[in-house]
Deep mutational scan, measured.
Amino acid sequence: GATAVSEWTEYKTADGKTYYYNNRTDESTWEKPQELK
């Protein structure tokens, strides 16, 4: 099967917290998305 390329990108805020942003859905989350686990 084809490997899905994750749409999630990991970013850090100014105070060093990590969050994740999805370019396709324009969604952001503090929790690590399922695709990255």
Rank of each mutant, 00 (worst) to 15 (best):
K37I: 15
E7L: 07
E27R: 04
K12I: 11
T25K: 03
E7H: 09
A4G: 14
G1M: 14
E35Q: 08
K32T: 08
T9I: 13
A4W: 12
S28N: 06
D15E: 09
K17P: 00
Q34W: 14
N22R: 02
Y11Q: 09
K17S: 06
E35N: 09
S6Q: 11
Y11H: 13
R24P: 02
R24I: 15
W30Y: 11
K12N: 05
N22E: 01
Q34A: 15
Y20V: 00
A2N: 13
T13W: 03
L36D: 08
R24D: 05
P33S: 01
T18Q: 04
Y21F: 06
A4F: 10
T29A: 08
Q34E: 15
E27A: 05
E35P: 06
T25N: 04
T29F: 08
S6T: 12
E10R: 03
E31L: 08
Y11G: 05
K32Y: 05
D15V: 02
Y20I: 00
L36G: 07
K37F: 15
T13N: 08
W8D: 00
Y21L: 04
G16F: 01
A4K: 08
K37W: 15
T3E: 11
W8E: 00
V5W: 13
E31W: 06
K37V: 14
E7G: 09
A2Y: 11
G16I: 00
K17I: 08
G16M: 00
P33M: 02
E27T: 08
T25H: 02
Y20G: 00
T25Y: 03
E10D: 01
T18R: 04
K17Q: 10
N22M: 01
R24T: 10
A4T: 13
E10K: 04
Y19N: 01
A14F: 04
P33H: 02
K32M: 12
Y21P: 01
K32F: 06
T13A: 06
S28A: 12
T18L: 09
R24F: 14
Y21V: 10
T29V: 13
T25D: 03
T3F: 12
S6M: 09
G1E: 12
E35T: 06
E7N: 07
E35F: 07
T13D: 11
K12V: 13
E35I: 05
G1I: 14
E31V: 11
T18S: 10
P33I: 02
T9H: 10
W8A: 00
A14I: 11
T18F: 08
Q34V: 12
T9Y: 09
R24H: 09
Y20S: 00
A2R: 08
A4L: 15
T18V: 12
E7D: 12
A14N: 09
A2D: 12
N23F: 11
T13G: 09
S6W: 08
Y11S: 05
E10I: 09
Y19Q: 03
T9E: 09
T13Y: 03
W30K: 04
T9G: 06
K12G: 02
